[in-house]
């Protein structure tokens, strides 16, 4: 996945059975963001692989004050890249 400066990883082991998965997102390179991220803590959240889109979560993160509106695309893309990898791995398992 392209280095967006925003890192997204699994926050739990993925056994491929549940449609929701816990992810953790944090800023590795603040210089790549237009806005100034609030703090560099890791943000943990659950994501529904079937019902939700990465852009939904990115927008909610902006609305919750974690990121500036101008960074919603970078955050969405970072989540999308990780979710794509999870779904690819799951398809390989099946």
């Amino acid at each position: 996945a392209e280095d967006t400066g925003v890192r997204v990883e699994l926050a739990e082991e993925d056994h491929g059975r549940k449609s929701t998965i816990a992810l953790r997102l944090w800023v590795e390179d603040p210089k790549k963001l237009k806005g100034k991220p609030k703090d560099n803590g890791a943000i943990e959240f659950t994501f529904d692989l079937e019902k939700e889109t990465p852009e939904d979560v990115a927008q909610e993160m902006v609305e919750s004050g974690f990121f500036h509106e101008s960074d919603v695309k970078i955050v969405g893309k970072s989540i999308r890249d990780r979710v794509a990898l999870i779904q690819w791995r799951r398809s390989r398992i099946r």
């Binding site: 590795e28 703090d39 943990e44 909610e60």
Partner: peptide, 27 residues
């Protein structure tokens, strides 16, 4: 303060926890 929780109006919970130092300075 870290380990804070923010619940978005749509109901999603965001839990903020410290990033392990080692992960912050990854190349």
């Amino acid at each position: 303060s870290l380990n804070a929780q923010v619940v978005h109006s749509a109901g999603r919970r965001f839990i903020v926890s410290p990033v392990p130092e080692s992960r912050l300075r990854e190349p």
